[in-house]
Design a protein around this nucleic acid. Structure first.
Lengths: 213, 213
DNA sequence: ACCTGAACACCGTTCAAGT
DNA sequence: ACCTGAACACCGTTCAAGT
């Protein structure tokens, strides 16, 4: 009984904003952000490049759309969790969503998203902060501080080419900068996971200590 | 006696890597990153586009070069300052350098800089951390955490279009999200200065508390 | 060693035309 | 309402030629 009446069955459906965004994300995953073009996306969809403009407002709007798809993948935190658990769950969910599409992640991390879709995670962070007794202005402060850390950390994770060989170590030791040389073995590599947990802990500890209740 | 012998006097000098980078930065400041092209830069320099390739390795290398120019503008902290003063001075110097060229700042904030030029500020942060007794691995942790916060915060500052009118407030209140609505007046605006100081304080307090001496 | 210009293989997007 | 294709005004970069 499904799919009647429509001349072409839905999932063949030539074009739709959803199909375009889904395929665009796949294209970014495959070729990287710089190599994405409206024309390549159209070719991939078996369609004239201009057809895309019937569903998407141009390349910039397309990229914003991809960012929204990525953001929508962050799972909602368990509703009964306390402040720390909630913030931690959201931070980890955000990270997982970005690492799941590392090449597309900069779209979320570097673009100013006007859309209201981006507000679900904001609500999820703000609610426990308010519940913990933070007045709204300080809750927003807390939100923004954690978000800045997440964005900065994930930019580093996601831009890192998969190539820090031992090569860099020698470079670092040969700079004549004493502190750099002393810390060279730890500068040459980066355990992103540990880095993330280290910074997140500092911030969540600080917020916990500041919480009115 | 200066400038003899060279047929064209130095400062007329048709091209040089330095002149190209300086003019490229000015071009980014004027037209924005997206609108920058090798051809426009060449036109601005009164030169054939291809001449640039004699001094710069291509557009990507040009952009990396601009990022290095920006980074070089961070002043060295006073050498006699303690850990907190040093970190604070560097953070503020970094921020000032980025805000001085807001449209070019994403080059520093989002690109992976391979160059060793970027190491001067790293040395400046690491040195006081080591002096405060942090073992090298923890010093690097501290450096990276602060840097992530700086990058995330400055990305927000620098990407913010100069347009948060009262318009957004109504939008935020009408979302049906209770915490967002309650905090709407504070979400609608952003005092970047205060935000920066708030987050930086948390991090420097935490590092101070962790310092072995 | 450095500069030039033509040429190549691309872009995003407008517009008039089709169905 | 949606799709098409030609056309426009750009790109970054290679290459052979000039000085």
């Amino acid at each position: 009984m499904t799919g009647r009446r429509g001349r072409p069955p839905k999932d063949t459906g030539s074009l739709s904003r959803e199909r375009i965004l889904r395929e665009a994300l796949a294209l970014v995953d495959e070729v990287g952000l710089d190599a994405v073009s409206m024309r390549k996306l159209a070719r991939r969809l078996g369609v004239d490049p201009m057809s895309l403009y019937n569903h998407v407002d141009g390349k910039d709007a397309l990229l914003d759309g991809i960012a929204e798809v990525l953001l929508a993948a962050i799972p909602a935190p368990p509703p009964d969790a306390d402040l720390r658990e909630t913030m931690s769950a959201l931070a980890h969910g955000f990270r997982a969503a970005m690492l799941g599409h590392a090449r597309a992640a900069p779209l979320v991390l570097t673009r100013r998203l006007a859309s209201m879709t981006a507000l679900a995670p904001v609500e999820a962070v703000l609610a426990p902060l308010l519940a913990a007794g933070f007045p709204p202005d300080r809750a927003v402060h807390g939100l923004r501080t954690v978000l800045a850390f997440l964005i900065g950390t994930l930019m580093r994770e996601v831009e890192t080419a998969p190539t820090y060989s031992g090569r860099r170590l020698a470079d670092l030791e040969g700079t004549g900068l004493p502190a750099v040389a002393a810390a060279a073995p730890f500068l040459a590599v980066c355990d992103h996971e540990a880095e993330f947990e280290f910074g997140l802990r500092i911030l969540l500890d600080a917020l916990g200590a500041m919480a009115p209740r």
